[in-house]
Nucleic acid binder design. Sequence first.
DNA 1: AAGTGGTCTAGACCACGGC
DNA 2: CCGTGGTCTAGACCACTTC
Lengths: 240, 240
Amino acid sequence: MPENHRNGTPAYRRIQGAILKRIETGQLKPGDAVDSERELARIHRVSLMTARHALAGLEQEGMVERRRGAGTFVAPPKIHFNKLVSFSEQMATRSLPARSKVLSCSVIGKEQEIAARLALPASSRLIKLERLRQGAEEPFCLETCYLSADEYASLTHSPLERGSLFSTLEHDFGLELAYADEEIDATAADSRTAQLLGISRGFPLIRIRQVIYSTKGKPAIYALGLYRSDRHTLLIRRFR
Amino acid sequence: MPENHRNGTPAYRRIQGAILKRIETGQLKPGDAVDSERELARIHRVSLMTARHALAGLEQEGMVERRRGAGTFVAPPKIHFNKLVSFSEQMATRSLPARSKVLSCSVIGKEQEIAARLALPASSRLIKLERLRQGAEEPFCLETCYLSADEYASLTHSPLERGSLFSTLEHDFGLELAYADEEIDATAADSRTAQLLGISRGFPLIRIRQVIYSTKGKPAIYALGLYRSDRHTLLIRRFR
DNA sequence: AAGTGGTCTAGACCACGGC
DNA sequence: CCGTGGTCTAGACCACTTC
């Protein structure tokens, strides 16, 4: 009986969607039992293998846990480790207002090393955006971002004081960010940085050099951040 | 015909093993085509679904790539990001000898804060192991590890100068390590640390506080590392 | 004992890729 | 065009958990 998947979406996807909907609406809470393979097969009028396929996919995404002999259960909400989030997003999760003071925003040239990190020709013109970021009214990070001036020309006219650089790039330029490689070390504050961050010269800082890549694998942003180590610690989870 | 999986291992596992073996021995190189589902089904005398299951598993592990209409191919070797590796393993990948000097190894008590990080009673006795780690004949890290003295009592008699702490724990104590949560910040070297690392007092250091968990989710090791930031940078990949 | 997930069969049709 | 992976069926037996 080929009365299956009339529309384009595969049956197993529809089943996954139905389960996810019940989780999102709170109808199913973590720990609750999901319909068993056999129930799903009966309800959605598919074979057992198809119902299995649906549950296997959800398990692989971490949405459900399957225990042999017992059943399939909604997984506890996952804490997301090592996620790439913007400063604004980071602050939002702690319900703190994200304040940034733009120190400078200009187009520069002759920065071979940075152009190279962005996989651009050595002579490329770059936007250099320097911001002082603060939480709880106190500055704790000096961040310098570099982007291709050709690709993001109008960025210099965007209102960067309030909004998030990430969301501007994603909405106005259709840039989809995928991942970032970070290089982390420690350094001592020079006098200018010390003054801006309100600390004394020589104070230890965390230095983060970050290359952010688009979904196409193209380097899009190079960012250099200097953080007051007494106001900021990095959290990483590593897996064996 | 129930002439299947005589031994305990499922058919799909045997198929995966056969493919992995051909990859590991270099018989199959990245980009090479793997046997198609139909070929595998015929060769191993299993159904198509079972052959599919085998390939799906390998794909999910990142060992092969499947392209509809084209075939299944050996995936390029993955660079492992954010992996939990021991100092010895880290050095081995750069073919450098791992040298550690044990500064002290003793059983202590009354370290409430550290006991708490290991989810142990405040009065627990702990092994404290302090090591100076060096690469290229120069010390670049001072590391202090803490473990439950009750669970790893005989560790104080193990030869820690040469071997890896990880492998000792895994082999001699059957401890399976799963992941670690790290807290990273920067600090200035105190005089003792400065002397041990061969730098001057106040020099910026990366400080990494690490709680390493077993596969059962139990905290097993607490490690505090101080790294010369001029000899060591941390590499992290974050995903959106 | 009843129900569950884990494995497996022997077919089938489809959409897509490369030749 | 032929071979590929993607989806699917309608059953089956096993090992396991729960009661």
